[in-house]
């Protein structure tokens, strides 16, 4: 875990949960033991790198993943996006912005008590494909939509 780059998501999760258990066992913190923040994935500068860091293999486009967003974002600083998965056993939904400096924007773990339907707002530096990535039964499915940005959200 410490010397090799994480190549398998399973291995990463195993390590992360072991760490989480250790942390929660050591200190009865008021806050929860979270899965370790996936720094490599959030630091990734391009889509293939983000996928690699997340352990995503062969993502397939699926009509059962819905990405709801407007075609044109007037203000790139606030781009509302909603992702809905109709695929059974969805365990994770992520938002990725292909042309942002950091591709991965947000990742939601969909627990058994949650519906696979999340909404948030993203920053976009420029017109780009936005990808809703769904993990279900260990496989990855995507919905992609190009959102045109008329005013960037990452400028100084």
């Amino acid at each position: 875990m410490t010397t090799l780059p994480t190549t398998s998501r399973r291995g990463f999760l195993r390590g992360a949960s072991a760490l989480g258990l250790a942390v929660s066992a050591l200190a009865a913190l008021p806050r929860l033991a979270l899965a370790a923040w996936n720094k490599a994935a959030f630091d990734a500068k391009a889509l293939p790198d983000a996928y690699k860091a997340m352990g995503v293999e062969n993502p397939t486009a699926s009509a059962d993943v819905q990405l709801i967003a407007s075609d044109i974002a007037e203000n790139g600083a606030v781009v509302p996006v909603q992702a809905i998965s109709k695929i059974p056993n969805t365990t994770q939904i992520s938002f990725l912005v292909e042309k942002n400096p950091n591709t991965l924007a947000a990742l939601f773990d969909i627990g058994p008590d949650m519906l696979p339907d999340v909404t948030t707002r993203l920053k976009m530096g420029q017109t780009s494909n936005v990808i809703a990535l769904v993990k279900a039964d260990g496989k990855y499915f995507t919905a992609t939509k190009e959102i045109k940005v008329t005013l960037g959200g990452c400028g100084g």
Partner: peptide, 12 residues
Amino acid sequence: VMQAQWGASVSK
């Protein structure tokens, strides 16, 4: 019931 990890691309 819900856990999320975010990057800096989430809006202000």
